[in-house]
Simulated scan of single mutants.
Amino acid sequence: MPQEHNEFAAAIEFINRDHPRASINDGEKILLNPAQVLDNISHAMERLDLDINTPISIEEDVAALTELHTMVLNLMMGPTLAVHVVNTALRIMSARYPAELVTNPLPAEYDLRKIIPLPLDDHAHDLAKKIFNQRTTAATDLVEDDLYDLYEPLDVPTQLQVFNALFYMYGTKIGALKHRTGIA
């Protein structure tokens, strides 16, 4: 009975539009709401902007690895995840910080791995930085087609690394903007 109750509770959470549950996973199959995953990413990014000291774990606070993996492998939404992060980042930053600071690209010497110990290879890091800077300097949001040539040769683990890197690049830029402007 307890397992049935847990499954019922998970189903109720999943269909509740006000609940952040984005998937139900029985170990073999996953029922996923990609829009909820994207909403959860946005909410985590907004929380980070409101309190830079908020500890955020991708796996625990944003999206489960199985959700992200399913979006990339089965739904081929790796580019969607990337453009969502960078477009959301610019929307959040532009609302609170001076435009001349927001639109400055990450400098050539910027290396996320020196700030946050993430398991990123050079290719994934450089690609994430390129995407982040592409959106930072663009006048409009990126769309998936803007990343098609970059993503076509990437495997699932690399696409997941790029997503993680973009999320944390946003966090480091928000931290730098807060430090530079004094905006809490």
Rank of each mutant, 00 (worst) to 15 (best):
M1N: 05
V143G: 13
L142N: 11
D18E: 10
N87D: 05
L32C: 14
T88N: 12
M76Q: 10
K114I: 10
A139T: 06
R96H: 06
E60T: 04
R96P: 00
R17H: 12
A99C: 02
D149R: 01
H123P: 01
D155I: 10
D149A: 05
L166V: 08
T158N: 07
H179F: 11
E144R: 15
A82G: 08
A176N: 08
Y110I: 10
A11D: 01
D26R: 13
P117C: 07
N133T: 02
A82S: 14
N74W: 08
A35Q: 13
L177R: 03
P2D: 14
D126G: 06
R91F: 00
L127N: 03
L31I: 14
E28C: 12
D61I: 02
H179C: 07
A184T: 08
S94I: 02
I56F: 01
E144P: 02
I183C: 09
E60N: 11
D61R: 00
T136I: 08
I52W: 06
P98I: 07
L73C: 00
G171V: 05
V85P: 04
Q161E: 07
P107N: 08
I15C: 04
E100K: 10
F132T: 03
K29T: 08
Y170H: 13
E13V: 07
I56W: 01
M169D: 04
I174Q: 15
M1W: 15
I131H: 10
P117Y: 14
T66R: 08
